[in-house]
Computed example of a mutant assay.
Amino acid sequence: MTIGDVTSRISAIQAQLDMLAPASNPVSSAAFANALSANSLTAASGMPSVGAGATADGLAVVDEAKQYLGVPYVWGGTSPTGMDCSGLVQMVYEKFGYDLPRLSADQARSGQPVASMAEARPGDLIAWDNSSRNNGVDHIAIYMGDGKMIEAPRTGLNVRIVDVPSTPDVIRRILPDTAAVTSASFSPTAAPTPGGAVPSFVPYADAFNTAGRTYGVNPMLLSAVARQESGFDAKAVSGAGAQGIMQLMPGTAKGLGVTDPFNPTQAIDGAARLLKDLMTRFGSTELGLAAYNAGPGAVLKYNGIPPYAETQNYVRSIMTTLEATT
């Protein structure tokens, strides 16, 4: 037996132990592996905390844009201390793995066209061509829904929320049409469940099994994600603001119809729908997990699992747990 075989077997055993452990158990498979190997991968230095909250839906984009409310307008600015209209758009979407052009005229040609404001969704870009001196649009903003937008307006004013002042000359959708996941996207009837049921001694086993049966997601996969995300801690809050057992960002939770992400049953149900959508969209469990952790934009950008140590470890750890328990 090679050293690699031994290490693989140790990881599988630890995964089984972790599934048996109560939520209060401080030992994780990652910590166990680090104790055995000095060569274990670690999260990249300075890498932002991502988790499920990085999933790019329109409400998450709006929530991110709100972080910059009150920042002064600075022509050509692209930093949290000062930004112009296209700088705001570029910074917000960069958080979700989208590398948009720097100029508003170029941003207004990105993504897909939206026919009218009646079809506009939160997170869409709305833009105006106010001056004949420029080639293309010269002002761009992020649509919030309900006739409001977030903009970096002009010198002397700060990033703000205002009513959409007039019909935009251009409306563009950067996010995939399937990015907004709602309860209505899935049939509430029972679907065939791949994989086995979560044993009763695992925390919230009933919720994992119910959600798995309802949406056709392996309940053991849901359980493994919860262990990786929060250690089965329904009250967990990350440094980035992700909440609950499945670590949903507030905007993502709202888009999923989860009114209380600290309620384990609601959170698990929402996460099951989200994972089902991501795995269907990207065609595999591994890519679905990568999108759950780093966001669909990052998976699309790199055409696979992003080269982030955190995301690669995340996918590897969950798949190891899944393989050891099925």
Results as ranks from 00 to 15, higher is better:
Ser40Glu: 10
Thr259Cys: 00
Ile268Pro: 05
Thr42Val: 12
Leu278Val: 01
Ala30Asn: 10
Thr7Cys: 00
Gln16Thr: 13
Gln243Tyr: 06
Met117Val: 08
Glu286Val: 03
Arg213Ser: 15
Gly51Phe: 09
Ala271Tyr: 12
Thr42Gly: 06
Ala234Arg: 14
Gly212Glu: 06
Tyr68Pro: 00
Gly123Glu: 10
Ala240Trp: 11
Ile161Thr: 14
Pro306Ala: 07
Val198Glu: 01
Thr189Leu: 12
Pro113Ser: 13
Ala54Arg: 15
Ser24Arg: 11
Gly251Tyr: 01
Ala180Thr: 15
Ser79Leu: 07
Gly251Trp: 08
Met220Glu: 11
Met91Pro: 01
Cys85Leu: 04
Gly257Ile: 08
Val181Asp: 05
Leu41Thr: 11
Gly257Cys: 05
Arg316Tyr: 07
Asn134Glu: 14
Ala298Asn: 15
Met117Ser: 08
Met117Pro: 06
Asp106Ile: 00
Gly216Glu: 05
Asp177Thr: 14
Asn263Ala: 01
Ser183Val: 09
Val299Pro: 03
Ala54Asn: 15
Asn158Phe: 02
Gly195Asp: 10
Ser132Leu: 09
Ile305His: 01
Gly241Ile: 04
Gly82Cys: 10
Gly212His: 13
Ser24Pro: 00
Met220Ala: 11
Pro307Ser: 05
Val164His: 01
Gln266Trp: 04
Val71Trp: 01
Pro194Tyr: 07
Ala21Tyr: 08
Arg172Lys: 15
Thr155Pro: 01
Ala309Met: 05
Lys235Asp: 11
Leu100Gly: 05
Gln107Trp: 02
Thr42Arg: 13
Arg273Asn: 04
Leu222Thr: 13
Gly53Leu: 14
Asn34Gln: 12
Arg172Gly: 03
Asp18Arg: 07
Ala15Ile: 00
Leu222Glu: 13
Ser200Met: 00
Met19Arg: 14
Ile174Tyr: 07
